[in-house]
Computed example of a mutant assay.
Amino acid sequence: MINVILVDDETDLFPLFNVKFKREIRNNEIKFNFFTSARDVLEFIESSANDSFNYILSDINMPDMNGLELLDSIKRFNENQKVFIISSTNSEENNIKAKRIGADGFLQKPIDFKILKEILV
């Protein structure tokens, strides 16, 4: 089973993921762990095994800690963790920063779920 963390302060994205991946969830092919806070994600990751999650998808703009700061913390904890940054703006500067820190990819909102499925499953 593929285990994915999604962190975004906009919770309207969570039900959309459940709908778009309904078949995969029902068939126990994928599991999503939804978080609204980067700090909560870090606590959750630190209390879990290093290899518990296949992917982490993080919004870049969040109130308590931005996605680049979260990415940096995750990569310091586990440099092999696959992390994708999600943004509603196509910022070349953020894309370059994310890649430099170690992001495995950069997803544009609205998310193209066909592309995301190719990445995740």
Rank of each mutant, 00 (worst) to 15 (best):
P110N: 06
K109T: 09
G102C: 11
F77G: 05
K114T: 13
N94H: 13
N54I: 01
I85W: 12
K99L: 10
I115C: 07
S87F: 08
R76K: 15
K117S: 11
L107K: 05
D72G: 05
I56S: 02
K114D: 06
N95S: 09
L70H: 07
I119S: 01
E118G: 14
D51V: 06
N54Q: 08
E46I: 03
S37L: 07
F113P: 00
F53P: 03
M65A: 10
Q108V: 06
D59A: 09
I101D: 07
I101Y: 07
M65R: 12
E43R: 11
E43M: 12
N50H: 04
F44A: 02
S73D: 13
K97A: 05
E118T: 11
S37F: 08
K114Q: 02
E93F: 09
Q81D: 08
E46L: 03
G67V: 09
F53D: 01
I74W: 05
S87C: 08
A103Y: 00
F106A: 01
E92G: 00
M65I: 15
T36S: 15
N54D: 11
L42W: 07
K99Y: 12
I74N: 14
N66D: 15
F35W: 13
N50E: 10
F35K: 05
N33L: 02
V83D: 05
D59P: 10
K117L: 08
R100A: 14
S52C: 12
L57S: 10
T89N: 04
S91T: 10
N80C: 00
L57R: 02
D64P: 06
I85T: 14
Q81C: 07
A98Q: 04
K82C: 06
P63A: 11
L68Y: 02
I86R: 01
A98C: 10
G67Y: 03
I86D: 03
F113L: 11
I86W: 05
S48G: 01
I74K: 05
S91I: 12
P110A: 06
